[in-house]
Design a protein around this nucleic acid. Structure first.
Lengths: 386, 386
DNA sequence: CGGACTTACTTTTGCTATGAAACAATCCAG
DNA sequence: CTGGATTGTTTCATAGCAAAAGTAAGTCCG
């Protein structure tokens, strides 16, 4: 079932919309597709035929599970051959590089991580190329590479500015393309995660969707009309000026009472360290808060209220249909979710629709997966921008 | 140049897009249109011909002012015959009804207002019909009526709930249609103002655009992808739960420290009355604040900071390209604009793009004009929803 | 003054995506 | 086994478009 053509980018607009719909929304019959895309049944036959012949789509036996015992001719669901192509996604952090192999559906089939010993762009590119070789061994049909970096990225290719790598105008895509011979997409890490969730995660099929990440920093992404809104603040200083409580704590990394000072993992640890002198991990602090330790409870509670305020503001002003909380720091919701939800309610109009809130703890491989999704978008479906 | 057909709704999709573009963006040459709509020059000739023949568009001599002395054949700008149709817009308040006549371009050609002596739906419809007769006298080619009401409106026809009229499920569109024989669109007043500004005002041609109104209440509207986002809180309680300062003032109409308590005209007057015992008008309070009277200065300054916070939050989370401040209460910006702008800056990331902020004091006839724009949208261009 | 050039618009032509409608396939019910 | 229901296919006419070639109306410059 190996495809012959080097790339199946040459799709017409109609074919592409069919491919995206099937890719994102699972197996769908032609009739169902016709409904979703506002096309006639005849057009669907026309559009799907070449996609099936090229091996991108297949007719699957049937869902099986949802066997509607309706009468009439049974529908013939179409599905993407997810394994026909493989994609690599990388997340570059200050200390390590995380990599994953995914299918077309962005299911992770392999993962790998390596320490980053040098921040020199050439060395980083070398490491990425090495990891690509290693990951590619078990991945036939490798179609492209996506790389997520904290910092500003231009044209999905050049790292304009990265505070923690101390980079400025590094043409990372070109460096890696030269070493691997594969097309490479570089993007801000939060942007990549947002795209991934929009296509394959919590934001699937939604028109308006927001992502808030809490971890070493604060990240925010907004999707409107199915497209991510580009914004200027794409870096780790995001949220350092979102003042939530002018009387709140002051930390090294954010303004007094800002989202960064109240919510990020380093800031919470800093607050505990400054107050008690003990250097606890984030998990230890959450555990102590559950156990009722006063200082930890106070800080965690304050964080939960800040998170609730933030979510309510997003809901009030951006009006998304759903808000996803992601990142390494959302364990907060397990510990103090009630406080957060009460705060949200207090900051929302009683008649307003309840906020569709979803929580997803992400590790660094999830961030890498986000980068792989960018490669899927750009390289396979020709989505040039957003 | 009177049109023969009863209505020129039967436009193809292409023709409609041309008509909208010319309507919203002034006189445009065919070449310019071809660029904007991503069409070929040939298509433009095809699409504009029937529009010119029907009398909707005309070739105008030339801008004159912006006579670019370029060489080559001079362009032949096309313009809408704005006077070919007239529209009525009404704004219904608790005490009065305001009405305007507008052209297709939403330029107001006449205005009128009348006291509202009864809140009975039939009486209100009678008054609207009377005012229609009076306004229609000087307006040939009347094509439709738009009505803006504070409260929730369903299907652009039925007032679901209006707190100040004490209405519930009043089919206002039908009542007025029956009396006038003209098509009628009913919509929430804020929504109408937002639509008007999106098409003909501050939000013209923008993809993301926010409107914040300050007056007797707080209103908020968000436009994404050129379309207004529908929301559930469309009523005068909007903003009563946007807590800006938990330690702020408490007023009868909003939660403690909410946008309503800090910013609306009744709340500001209430604060002064509660503190000094004097019942001053909003303008008097602003004047005293400028003169340095301590209590008024304090309240106005606090309001300006609240406004700045609000604007910053909208900018941070909804990321509009422009924010319009409208309503009767934006005189605040003239008096304490510096404070407001400083507050915005404090709540924004230094690297973030500066907020495109525009201020426009609106009177009730401006609200009525907003309703007329709805009529233009729905009736002329067949824009069914949004 | 007049040809070269430039730009705007029009006409013609052919192609493509599309929907409509007739047709075929495949199930269920009785 | 027949009729009905539903899905998918084929055929065909057509709307809408781009490309190319042609026309119009000006400027530039010798």
């Amino acid at each position: 079932m190996t495809t012959h053509a080097a790339s199946w980018l040459p799709l017409s607009a109609g074919e592409r919309s069919v491919a995206i719909e099937v890719l994102v929304h699972g197996p769908l019959s032609r009739t169902e597709l016709a409904h979703r895309l506002n096309l006639s049944a005849g057009s669907l036959t026309r559009l799907t035929k070449p996609l099936i012949e090229s091996g991108l789509l297949v007719e699957v036996p049937d869902g099986g599970g949802t066997t509607q015992t309706r009468q009439g001719r049974p529908s013939q669901p179409l599905d993407i051959v997810a394994e026909s192509r493989a994609f690599l996604g990388f997340k570059v952090t200050q200390e390590r590089v995380y990599g994953v192999v995914t299918t077309l559906r962005s299911d992770v089939t392999a993962r790998l991580d390596r320490p980053l010993t040098s921040h020199d762009p050439e060395d980083v590119a070398d490491l990425l190329a090495e990891m690509t070789t290693e990951l590619a061994a078990g991945a036939p049909g490798l179609a492209g590479i996506g790389i997520g970096v904290g910092g500003r990225v231009r044209d999905r290719a050049v790292v304009g500015e990265s505070p923690f790598l101390l980079w400025r105008d590094v043409p990372l895509a070109r460096l890696v393309e030269r070493r691997t011979g594969l097309p490479v997409v570089v993007e801000n890490d939060v942007a990549a995660l947002v795209e991934a969730e929009t296509w394959f995660g919590a934001g699937r099929g939604l028109d308006r969707f927001a992502v808030l990440t809490i971890g070493a920093g604060i990240g925010y992404g907004l999707v409107l009309g199915g497209r991510r809104v580009p914004y200027a603040e794409e870096d780790r200083g995001f949220g350092s000026h979102w003042i939530i409580d002018p009387h709140g704590p002051l930390t090294p990394s954010g303004e007094r009472g800002s989202a960064v000072s109240l919510l990020t993992i380093p800031s919470i640890r800093y607050q505990i360290r400054a107050a008690t002198g003990r250097d606890l991990t984030y998990e230890e602090i959450l555990g102590l808060a559950v156990a009722g330790e006063p200082m930890c409870s106070r800080v965690v509670d304050e964080a939960a209220r800040a998170l609730g305020t933030l979510v309510a503001q997003i809901a009030n002003f951006a009006m998304p249909q759903k808000i996803l909380l992601a990142g390494e720091g959302v364990g907060l919701m397990d510990v103090a979710g009630t406080t957060a939800r009460e705060t949200i309610r207090a900051h929302r109009h009683p008649l307003a629709a309840p906020v569709g809130l979803e929580t997803k703890v992400s590790d660094f491989h999830d961030w890498a997966r986000g980068a792989a999704v960018l490669a899927i978008q750009v390289l396979v479906l020709g989505t040039a921008e957003g």
